[in-house]
């Protein structure tokens, strides 16, 4: 697992207080919302704030969120792309 991807998973677990969950239990391609991790819209707000705080990357609007929150892999790619800018 890439270092950034591991940090993304750790951030998700910590920020959303997914107690008892470990990074290896979150699949790279699992959808974060609906099926998969089953997160809701309040979790989305928490993740947006966590990503900004931990990685310094802003998710500006719902369109960006839709792309970034597809999966952990998509989120990791989104952070890697936008952290450089």
């Amino acid at each position: 697992m890439s270092d950034l991807k591991l940090r993304v998973k750790e951030m998700i677990i910590e920020r959303l207080k997914l107690e008892g969950m470990t990074p290896d239990q979150i699949g790279d391609e699992d959808p974060l919302f609906g099926e998969g991790l089953g997160l809701d819209s309040i979790d989305a707000l928490e993740l947006v704030l966590g990503i900004e705080q931990v990685f310094g990357v802003k998710i500006e609007d719902e369109a960006a969120g839709l792309k970034a929150f597809k999966s952990v892999q998509a989120l990791t790619d989104f952070i890697a792309e936008n952290a450089k800018a």
Partner: peptide
């Protein structure tokens, strides 16, 4: 205000 996303504000 702590932050906002998609109509939600913390």
């Amino acid at each position: 205000a702590d932050g906002a996303f998609a109509g939600m504000v913390k």
